[in-house]
Amino acid sequence: MTATAIRVQGIEKSYKDLHVLRGVDFEVASGSIFALLGSNGAGKTTMVKILSSLLKADAGTAAVEGFDVATESLQVRQSISLTGQFAAVDEVLSGKENLVLMAKLRHLENPGGIADELLAQFNLSDAGSRKVATYSGGMRRRLDIAMSLIGNPKVIFLDEPTTGLDPQARIDVWQTIKDLARNGTTVLLTTQYLDEAEHLADRIAILHKGRIIQNGTLDALKRLLPPAEIEYVEKQPSLEDVFLALVGETAEEQKEQEASR
């Protein structure tokens, strides 16, 4: 049996007369990628804030790694990490200094060694000594995720992780997220991008007007609609295909460019 990392039952949340969450239920298996898919205002960020013990629900229960988010918030915070919609990095510091600072705040031994390992893991070693103000958007997001992994949290919440990134940077972040799950980290990500959920998630829950209206694997969700009968299909490249074909670079070329900026 697969262990459950996150369990949500009947969660409700309102702001005065605005009902944001209306009885949300779902479970996330350990070591999986779970996408909470919904449009702006659907309640995705509110759900993440409740799960990370930053916000109290009006009703219902939620547990992360077996700890109740309402009554065992300290244990929950020790088990998780949260990355918001915008990279929370200090632009005045270098990439390595950001990581060292976070390691010191968590009272970990050998913060410099931890920083070097994460810089290598996220292909940022060459830029580690540079100020974050010189980083591209994709580099900042990778550094932000690297910072969230300090202390080896079992669960990581990624709230709109690719907001504002260009297509190449999005793909880089997608690969980072896949690597996290491959190494055993449970990932819950919120997104409004259909292709993001399609590329990454083991399971997808669609949150609409404060309720989960569907929850399942990509194949199961696709079976909700009948297949279209088309005699001849000529697959046209997407705009993303064209963009990456024209300006795409190898990982090594991109690394060299980032290091020279």
Score class of each variant (00 low, 15 high):
195 D>C: 01
217 T>R: 04
104 K>S: 03
118 L>K: 03
88 A>K: 06
38 G>K: 04
22 R>M: 00
176 T>G: 01
121 Q>T: 14
12 E>D: 11
236 Q>F: 06
133 A>W: 08
247 V>I: 15
247 V>Q: 14
82 L>Q: 00
12 E>T: 01
29 A>Q: 15
157 F>H: 01
93 L>I: 04
229 E>W: 02
90 D>A: 10
196 E>R: 01
60 G>Y: 02
31 G>Y: 09
100 V>P: 02
133 A>F: 11
106 R>H: 10
53 S>G: 05
80 I>P: 01
86 F>P: 00
251 A>I: 11
65 E>W: 02
55 L>C: 10
234 E>N: 11
249 E>K: 15
158 L>P: 03
247 V>E: 14
213 I>M: 03
110 N>G: 05
88 A>W: 09
205 A>W: 02
105 L>V: 10
242 V>Y: 12
128 G>Y: 03
201 A>M: 05
189 L>N: 09
165 L>E: 10
115 A>W: 01
183 N>T: 14
126 D>Y: 06
158 L>T: 09
133 A>G: 05
124 L>E: 05
21 L>A: 02
63 A>I: 04
198 E>I: 04
168 Q>A: 14
261 R>E: 07
79 S>F: 08
120 A>N: 14
210 G>K: 00
36 L>G: 08
179 D>K: 15
126 D>M: 12
31 G>P: 07
134 T>G: 07
96 K>I: 13
91 E>M: 09
135 Y>P: 03
242 V>D: 13
150 I>H: 07
187 V>F: 08
97 E>F: 07
204 I>S: 03
3 A>Q: 13
140 R>A: 10
150 I>W: 05
181 A>P: 04
35 A>M: 08
209 K>R: 14
107 H>L: 11
61 T>K: 12
118 L>T: 06
81 S>N: 15
237 P>F: 12
113 G>K: 04
47 M>T: 14
191 T>W: 01
224 L>G: 13
238 S>E: 13
233 V>L: 15
137 G>F: 06
11 I>H: 02
249 E>A: 15
206 I>E: 02
243 F>Y: 15
235 K>F: 13
18 L>V: 13
102 M>S: 05
168 Q>T: 12
235 K>H: 13
259 A>S: 14
9 Q>S: 13
254 Q>C: 04
41 G>H: 10
173 V>W: 07
210 G>Q: 05
96 K>A: 14
96 K>G: 10
66 G>V: 11
150 I>P: 00
183 N>H: 14
51 L>E: 00
229 E>Y: 05
20 V>P: 03
202 D>Y: 06
214 Q>D: 12
11 I>A: 03
132 V>N: 06
172 D>Y: 08
148 S>N: 11
246 L>A: 15
14 S>Y: 00
84 G>D: 03
194 L>Q: 10
17 D>G: 07
203 R>N: 09
192 Q>I: 06
38 G>E: 04
246 L>H: 13
24 V>G: 07
246 L>M: 14
